[in-house]
Design a protein around this nucleic acid. Sequence first.
DNA 1: ATCATTGCAAAAGGTTTGCACCAAA
DNA 2: TTTGGTGCAAACCTTTTGCAATGAT
Lengths: 136, 136
Amino acid sequence: MLMTKEILRQKKLKVTPQRLSIFYMLKNTTSHPSVETIYSLLRETHPTMSLATVYKTLSVLVDANLVQQINVGENSFRYDATVSPHPHIICSKCNEVHDLHLDFVDEFFYKVQEETNFKLSYQKLYFYGICPTCQH
Amino acid sequence: MLMTKEILRQKKLKVTPQRLSIFYMLKNTTSHPSVETIYSLLRETHPTMSLATVYKTLSVLVDANLVQQINVGENSFRYDATVSPHPHIICSKCNEVHDLHLDFVDEFFYKVQEETNFKLSYQKLYFYGICPTCQH
DNA sequence: ATCATTGCAAAAGGTTTGCACCAAA
DNA sequence: TTTGGTGCAAACCTTTTGCAATGAT
C-alpha cells in the first residue's frame, strides 16, 4: 500500500482513498477489468464511491501514464496497470484478456517505424482465439 | 457497381440500395469511416436513409465477413472493407487511419500461436505515432 | 405473396459534465 | 486556508431494439 501512495505523490497527484484503492486493485489483478467491474468490486469495501469517481480517477491515472486503456472490441474500455507496451491475447470463448510478453515485439515495432516513416510512440496489439483451457 | 451487387448475392444477402451504397462506399475509401461519417456522407445521395439502417447494414456486412470493424481507441467503431488481417497505423495529430501491408505479419501471428498454445483466429494490430506529413 | 429490410422513435448502454460539499495539502 | 477531489444527478453520445410500413425475391 505504501508503494502505491508514493507513486501517486511522485506524479504530483493528490492521494485519496479512492485513487489508492482503484490503482491498488489494478496493480493486483491480471483480469483487465472494465469500469463497471472495478466499480462493483470496490463498492464492497468503499460503499460510498461513485461511478463518476471511478471514471475520473481512471482518466487521471491514464494521463499520468500509470494505467493504460485498452479496447478489445467491446463497446467499453478495459484498464491495465502494466503500462509497458505489451500485446494482449483474448479468448473468444471465455472472454478473458491476458498479457503477452514477447521478446520480438520491439523488433516488430522498429521494423514498422522504418517502413512507414512514421515517428511511432506506441502500439496496441491484440490476438484473438481460443485459449488452451477452452479448447477442451 | 455490378461487382458489389454480385458479392452480396453470393453471400445470400438481399440486395437493397442501402446495402449497395454503404458497401460500395466502404470499398472505395481508405479513410476507415465511423458510422456517423458514413451516415452523413450517404445522406447527400440517399436522403431517406436512417442511422439505424447504417448500423444494421454494417452489422450484416461484418457478419458476412465483407467488412471489418476496428477500434482505434476512440469511443466509436470504424469500418474497413479490406477484411484480410492487416495492421493499421494512426497519426495522433491528424487522426487519419491508414492500412499497413507488411510481409512479416503472418510470421508474427504464427510465432504468437506457438508460444501461447492458443488456437488463434485473427489479430488486430494498431500503431500510433506522427505521420510523415504531420512531422513538418 | 412472402418474408426480410427499412425508417422512425424510444430505449439502452457507456461516458462526461456541472456543481455543491468535502477532504488533502 | 486553499486547492482540488468526490458524489450525485443530469446530460450526452453511440449503439440497439420494437414495430409498422415498405420493398426484394
